[in-house]
Write a protein that binds this DNA or RNA. Structure first.
Lengths: 290, 290
DNA sequence: CATTTTATCTGACTAAAGTCAGACATCATG
DNA sequence: CATGATGTCTGACTTTAGTCAGATAAAATG
């Protein structure tokens, strides 16, 4: 009763019935699940018919019929794709948006019901984040985004909060050398976030300088996503971007209060060098030639 | 992207596809899911046909056909129930046990695959326990068991380990007044474990004495199950058992290093009394008249 | 012991999901 | 611009799941 596999299987059973309950509530809107799923996929912004078919793993014949039935209900409209008249795009009508909103309300109610079952909400949410990150591990997308984008700002906020917790003297962004956003945009540098589904779970910045090297900044991995080797993937992506931009030398600074970071650098070809800036927070400095 | 409901829904999506993958692998054995589910229910020890039907929420007609198809495959045998010839009981044949083992292997492989996705196995397992406990909250069964049973011994082991962590001086069972198992069996007392599915997640002992009162001992709730008001449910069950046994006065001892326990007692009609034993660990003593 | 209740089974049915082959229009390529 | 590839659609089909109304036999009840 204690072995890991039984614990996972107990989790599976618990979660299966919760998921089944959502399906049942979806059926309450008088439409087969297949049609409801297509409607929801369109509502969530998937317009390309081929993409929906792929996402829901549907046969093209079945997909076609489901679209027809939604059209007959007056919930969607389809049209030929602008660039390729073989492809079709679907969008919700006014009635479709209403119906989609009703499904959204059901999903939200289920999610809230699930949360309400536990008085330690934050613990439950953290556990869910951890599991969702583990399960979607191979579907984590590394996206280059603007360092001022919502995703980037979220990651940086979490990063600063974590430094505040980990440094004995706390962390104050204004004392640190805050990189200029334009140094982390192409062609001088870039900013990469790791997205699991719709949640940012890690980031790294590549900051261009005028001193013949670029710097790696703001490497962060969400607590729920640790253990997935995401730090390494982010670093690899940043180094790839640097190579693309013709950068031959990288530097970074870090702090010995973050031992896992130092270990990552050492194991991936970085070598320690003397201090190369006067930022008060770092006490370890690394360099890597590409 | 940060609000609790989106986090829950992200978790739902992640988990749905993992669960779907198991169904798909079950289909790989060339049998519809309905039949596979019935076979597995029988394999897991459910023999009574009515019980299986109830568990899987199947119509009696459908259930009957599924049993017939498994019988035709030579995987199960059915017979009339010993005590009631209307009822049927099903059991696996030799071939059925082989086939069941194959399904078990698939389930175990899926569970292991899921675990392998995360290098921090313990963190992942703890998160799964937490979620499974929250989701099966209303299905937690309070069972009276022998204090020497496997479930009871597991709970006590966890309980002692936790005391060791929470007491600054550690905890050594041999120094404490370890209750005799026979004092926690009917008719002198009882021992109750809270079972979530197959996992014990809490316990409490009612220990009979010869001094005109009974004692509450070993109240424990697994970390993953805290916040579900399980402690209160266990105490209620223990008090109910005491009333059944004709016990009019209850006492217990606890330690101020366990503040949540003290709070529970105070809020449920217990009043503090002077020390009534010489156990070195407790420093708080309570009494409740039933 | 007659009557009612219960557990299972059978036949007849429907709905939903999924499969497959071919038709058709459009696009990409040499 | 002929040819093959691609994306969608339609018709014909099967499988799976599920429903419902009796039929039957065995308890339970008065």
């Amino acid at each position: 009763m204690l072995d890991p596999v039984s614990r996972v299987r107990r989790f599976n059973r618990a979660v299966t019935s919760a998921v089944g309950a959502l399906d049942t509530s979806f059926l309450g809107r008088g439409r087969p699940l297949g049609a409801a799923r297509v409607l929801n996929a369109i509502g969530h912004g998937r317009s390309d018919v081929a993409e929906i078919r792929d996402y829901l793993a549907l046969d093209s014949g079945l997909m076609s019929r489901l679209l027809r039935s939604l059209e007959d209900e007056g919930l969607i409209e389809t049209a030929a794709h602008e660039d390729d008249a073989r492809r079709r795009v679907a969008k919700l009508t006014r009635a479709g948006r209403r119906e989609f909103a009703a499904y959204e309300a059901l999903s939200n109610a289920q999610a809230e019901g699930l949360l309400a079952q536990h008085s330690q909400r934050e613990a439950l949410l953290a556990a869910m984040d951890l599991i969702a990150s583990a399960l979607t591990r191979e579907r984590v997308a590394l996206d280059e985004v603007d360092p001022r984008s919502e995703q980037a700002r979220y990651c940086l906020g979490e990063y600063y909060a974590e430094l505040g917790r980990r440094f004995s003297q706390g962390f104050d962004v204004s004392l640190s050398r805050d990189p200029d956003a334009k140094d982390m945009r192409r062609p001088r540098g870039t900013f990469i976030v790791a997205m699991s589904d719709t949640l940012p779970i890690g980031c790294v910045g590549l900051k261009g300088t005028d001193h013949g090297y670029a710097e790696i900044k703001r490497l962060w991995v969400a607590p729920a996503a640790r253990g997935l080797r995401l730090g390494r993937r982010l670093m690899d992506a940043a180094e790839d971007a640097a190579r693309e931009l013709g950068i031959g030398l990288l530097r970074l600074d870090t702090n010995s209060a973050l031992p896992e970071a130092g270990q990552l650098y050492r194991s991936t070809g970085w070598r320690e060098i003397p201090r190369f800036n006067d930022d008060p927070y770092p006490d370890l400095f690394f360099e890597k030639r590409l």
